[in-house]
Amino acid sequence: MPSETESGSVTAGKSATAEPMISLSNVHKSFGDTEVIKGISFDVAKGDVVCIIGPSGSGKSTLLRCINALVPIDGGSIRVEGQEVHDANLDRLALRKKVGMVFQQYNLFPHKNALDNLMMAPIKVLRQDKKEVRERALKLLEKVRLSGKEDAYPGELSGGQQQRVAIARALAMNPDIMLFDEVTAALDPETVKEVLLTIRELAEEGMTCILVTHEMGFAREIADHMYLTDRGVIVEHGPPAEFFDNPKDERTRSFLGQIL
């Protein structure tokens, strides 16, 4: 029963006993009186692609922000590569060097051109050599099919192009994990494809990814494991085939019914 096992054991070729890359257990988070996450637990193994879907306001984006300590949690534990994120003594910067994040609104730095957007963090945060960083940044731009746009400012790029620069910017830090927060939600249908293609390539290269998405078709194709959250809890999870074709929970069925 895949829905009973942890995601780590679902992926073939990975030892079930090795510590998962990311491990959430009984995470709680409130904003004021509103509890948005009410006890969520799951594991993500190295190289896994996990997709989280669910109605808006169900805490998906907040959950992602908890993983790289953008949002502090109120209870439970989140471990990333064995490091407790909730720890008061945590070196947040060390954590964030390992976890890249891409946002719905791209959030590129508008006063820097595409290349500088990529190079800023590695030079200023990782203190890497400017020349090496530049080479790597150029390669990354090529990887996201934006060669020739090095000098373009974010305002001069289309939404899809900006989002690909944002992905490359996160990759420039050489992260072990990538978080994608509804990265195609603000894009028009034509440009969604090019962004998804980039993410798919990343997943195929073995990057550990957590995606919050509304792209059901894409999630089904790419995910190793699906989660549906509703009102702060995980309603159902399982491998995509099972999850989409044979949902057990009534809420999953109605949600998928609305979306598909």
Partner: peptide, 15 residues
């Protein structure tokens, strides 16, 4: 300045 700028910069490990 939109809060997304802070979020993005924090996520890139800037102090």
């Amino acid at each position: 300045i939109p809060s997304g700028q802070w979020e993005a910069a924090h996520s890139l490990a800037f102090s």
